[in-house]
Structure formats: C-alpha cells, structure tokens
C-alpha cells in the first residue's frame, strides 16, 4: 500500500501518476475529525439500516447480530445517522479520545 507522500522519490511514481491501489483512501482515517460520536440503543433499533444508507462516509456497518455500529476510524461525527433514525435509537455523544 502507498507510503506517506513525502517519502516518494520521483521515480517511484507510476507513469502518468496512475494509482493502481484503488480504494487506498482507506489509509486515511477521517475519524480524527470527530468531536461527537454516535451510540446505538439496541433496545430501540429495528435494524432498518437507514443509518447505514444515509452515512456519507460509508462508516456504518452491520454487525453479525444485525445491529449497526459506526467504524470510528472513519466516522466524522456528522450526526446524520442520529438525526435520521426515526425509532430514535442513535444518540450523538461527546467523543472522549
């Protein structure tokens, strides 16, 4: 996978600066942008997945038990999931990092 930008020598870039490692943006953890994080109250969650569907960062995933949670490596804390959760199963809380 790619190394940090400042470590590249000119001859290490591919011809035409092509990037073959598709999806390598995953290297960049946007979770650091966050001040609030979503928490799920599974007693209220109906597993509809709208939180997953509305997440601009594709940072919400379904666990094996069918409930949803945020991948905190990427969740930017925008709050859309909590705002759109109609059974009110998601709350945004202060993220102590």
């Amino acid at each position: 996978m790619p190394k940090p930008m400042e470590e590249y020598k000119w001859h290490e870039l591919r011809i035409g600066c092509v990037i073959e490692e598709v999806g390598s943006a995953r290297e960049y953890k946007t979770g650091g942008w966050r001040s609030m994080k979503p928490v799920w109250d599974e007693s209220r969650c109906i597993k509809c997945g709208l939180c997953w569907l509305y997440c601009p960062d594709a940072a919400i995933y379904q666990k094996e038990d069918g409930f949803f949670t945020a991948d905190l490596d990427y969740c930017k804390g925008c709050g859309i999931c909590a705002h759109e959760c109609w059974p009110k199963a998601i709350k945004m809380v202060e993220d102590e990092k």
Partner: peptide
C-alpha cells in the same frame, strides 16, 4: 485504476520531474 489524481506540494515537484 485512478488516472488524473492531484498532487499536493509534497508530490507535485516529483511528478513534474518524472
């Protein structure tokens, strides 16, 4: 693959030098 990515100051010089 991705063609036409942009370069920040850390890489633009290397890209143009290449």
């Amino acid at each position: 693959l991705t063609m036409g990515a942009y370069a920040t100051p850390e890489l633009y010089t290397e890209a143009k030098f290449a």
